[in-house]
Design a protein around this nucleic acid. Sequence first.
DNA 1: AAAACGAGACGAGACGATCCGTCTTGACAG
DNA 2: CTGTCAAGACGGATCGTCTCGTCTCGTTTT
Lengths: 209, 209
Amino acid sequence: MTAQHGTAPGTAPGTAHGTRRRSEASRRAILTAAFELVGEVGYAKLSIEGIAARAGVGKQTIYRWWPSKGAVLFDAFLMLSEGPDDSPALPDTGDLEADLKAVLRATVAELNDPRYDEPMRALNTEILHDPALAAAYAERLDGPMKELKKQRLRSAQRAGQLSGDLDLDVAIEMLWGPLLNRWLQRSGPLTPEYADTVVETALNGLRPR
Amino acid sequence: MTAQHGTAPGTAPGTAHGTRRRSEASRRAILTAAFELVGEVGYAKLSIEGIAARAGVGKQTIYRWWPSKGAVLFDAFLMLSEGPDDSPALPDTGDLEADLKAVLRATVAELNDPRYDEPMRALNTEILHDPALAAAYAERLDGPMKELKKQRLRSAQRAGQLSGDLDLDVAIEMLWGPLLNRWLQRSGPLTPEYADTVVETALNGLRPR
DNA sequence: AAAACGAGACGAGACGATCCGTCTTGACAG
DNA sequence: CTGTCAAGACGGATCGTCTCGTCTCGTTTT
């Protein structure tokens, strides 16, 4: 039931024999309000009180079910990502370089989308300071996406387009790491052309060929 | 002078004709207190009041000279990095791979040092949400280090160990991006071995050779 | 089957605590 | 004089806890 990300299950809310009903309406209202609010007022001014007011909910209803502001934010992302069927496998046309460029350009577009920029920055902030939340993120949000990337790379490996003894985790971080870093630290323009250059450079290596 | 990072210079504190003396002792006490406190209580509980109390300083003295908590933190780092002579150029033994491994391993060690972990996470948090601070960081802290890295890579390029048409900014981000990301998001163990693998993979490229 | 009971969750908001950023005071220094 | 300093009072915002009275239901009793 939701992330909770740090608490032991105990008597999981949903099993006991007595009575207990969790309001699904309130849950959705809270997560929606949290996501919208962080986009409007920014991370620094995001408050539990504000979320409760916007959601038309008592503060206790938030404190009862989530251990921290970060956990609420996390569940809000989880709700979004579970909406549509979003595991349609990465493109695999046989042309690895083109496929990677397409995917990285999509990542760039998403990072540049003002609708997601603030919320994602907020989530990253919480992850930055909460190892438990970081673990939940790695497992529930980043993990599935990473698996898709690995599949595409494995396919390329089978086709002989990638070195056979490649560590796929490292490969993924070499492709996406530069993008993420540029976005987080704003260390340079995050353009589709940059994505292309990263792909080309990563594939060919820094050494002359 | 300090960073100020967003304000126009105006009458820079130090030039006016009347009288004005800024207490250097207070300045150092504030920056030291900020750095120590964030390491002790963490970023979430770091407060201006706490910094002032620890530094034995009035709150107004902080508000007078710094526009935000992030700017204080930034100047604290600036003070540290300006202490010793820390631009001794990167090692250049002629063996690019070994030199890069040594430097990346040093980066890993620094990121893993609990003395710097919390403060650096705090600084990154502020950078994440403050473009002006991000620009100051890029210029004053990251910039000089990046220039050293570029020099080493240029030397390698001259020696024919790196592709001639390489974008050095991209090369640097491909080497350090994975490390930074792993540290920020805690997406995996940050070990010296990982640094080695990144160097090897980046140099050789993902494609088979 | 219908009525009564009881366990929780719910919205609302009062509460003391903390920290915000501003403002005032009186001492001190150029 | 003028501007900085340490100290701290001030009103406002938000924190997390706690207490209300209401509600929704599963269980039990009739």
